[in-house]
């Protein structure tokens, strides 16, 4: 025969078990929430870091003597870039000067049409592909730059542009 005291004891144990289960479920949910948020933040910081790296690579390229405009820091000399493109087209061995598969400069503002720059279209064009060593170059990293040149009246004209870089080998190594 179960006495009333024993029944009360059973009930207490049941209550305790329920409370413990509820607490465990609560903490499990909280932990899942925390891990999800942490995970997304980690993803964001990885993306930020890769953006920073791309930006740094673009800054480095923009400051090399072959690209830089002497009158302002971080600006690109479009005339030099166009000449470099032609030089590389004549001598393929120059492609090995950079650790990249793809380097291009694009004009963003003022909006220009005319597509790829050629001796016939320059400077009325909007894209100068300096280097294209492989047909498939992956996803190019890009950053805003100021592209400057001398116009017909020998005045400095600076436009807003984008410098694109891609290095498949480096992409493979990082993935």
């Amino acid at each position: 025969m179960i006495t009333s005291l024993e029944r009360r004891g059973q009930l207490k144990v049941q209550e305790m078990a329920f409370v413990l289960i509820a607490l465990m479920v609560f903490f499990a949910l909280a932990a899942i929430l925390y891990i999800t948020i942490r995970g997304s933040l980690l993803e964001q910081s990885a993306r930020d870091q890769s953006d920073e790296q791309a930006l740094e690579a673009v800054r480095q390229i923009a400051s090399t003597p072959e690209f830089t405009w002497s009158e302002c820091k971080g600006c690109i000399d479009l005339d030099k870039v166009f000449l470099l493109k032609q030089q590389i087209a004549r001598d393929a061995s120059l492609q090995g000067l950079w650790d990249y598969d793809y380097i291009a400069v694009e004009s963003v503002y003022p909006a220009r049409v005319g597509g790829e720059c050629t001796p016939a279209t320059y400077p009325a064009c909007n894209r100068t592909t300096v280097l294209l060593s492989q047909e498939s170059y992956g996803v190019a990293a890009s950053a805003f730059v100021t592209i400057c040149r001398w116009d017909a009246q020998e005045q400095t004209v600076c436009d807003l542009g984008k410098l694109y870089l891609s290095d498949k080998g480096r992409e493979r190594a990082s993935s």
Partner: peptide
């Protein structure tokens, strides 16, 4: 954001 700062640096030099 570093890319927006870079955008501002570059666009303020535009003629």
């Amino acid at each position: 954001s570093a890319d927006i700062a870079q955008f501002l640096d570059s666009s303020l030099l535009v003629t």
